[in-house]
């Protein structure tokens, strides 16, 4: 079947087997190997990408289901050569060890922070319960997301009241 997708801003047209999984399409056809496979059963979260801006587990989507969709993978998260605040925060807070779960965790968190820019520790933990990490014990992952949330709210245009506060 023909699919037409936009991945990390680039448009592709490919003829794919109907049973080809989206994750295999990304990894084997487009050679975007930053998206990993840890369980192929929608549980570990290693394969998380954004489909039309929402986090989705690409191991349980067929490539054909992504027809006419916009997909972002870890390789496309940086904008204009600038790393996403989550990427820099994971490095600063040692939120990764082997790095295998990391792309999926970051993609999940990136979507979550759009919905909830000021999460509590507990909210972050709940948001990440669909991403397994065997290395970090999650502690520094949580701290990385907290730091990214801080950075992202700082970089938002300052609100009017805030501005006045700053002036005062």
């Amino acid at each position: 079947m023909q699919i037409h997708v936009k991945v990390n801003g680039v448009e592709y047209k490919h003829d794919v087997e109907p049973r080809l999984l989206l994750v295999h399409y990304l990894r084997d056809v487009l050679r975007l190997t930053g998206t990993h496979i840890g369980c192929e059963t929608s549980i570990c979260g290693a394969c998380t990408v954004h489909v039309n801006g929402k986090a989705a587990k690409s191991c349980t989507l067929f490539a054909v289901q992504a027809d006419n969709c916009e997909i972002t993978t870890i390789e496309g998260l940086a904008q204009n050569g600038e790393l996403h605040p989550l990427q820099t925060s994971f490095k600063e807070m040692h939120g990764l060890q082997c790095g295998f779960c990391t792309p999926g965790v970051i993609m999940t968190a990136a979507d979550y922070l759009k919905q909830n820019p000021h999460p509590t520790e507990e909210e972050i933990r709940t948001a990440l319960e669909g991403n397994f990490c065997r290395c970090t014990g999650y502690q520094n992952i949580v701290k990385s997301v907290q730091l990214a949330a801080e950075k992202m709210s700082e970089s938002k245009p300052v609100t009017k009241e805030k501005k006045e506060e700053v002036v005062v």
Partner: peptide, 12 residues
């Protein structure tokens, strides 16, 4: 090593 992992450039 983080530089490659956070950008999806690890090589497993």
């Amino acid at each position: 090593e983080d530089n490659r992992f956070i950008t999806g450039k690890g090589n497993y």
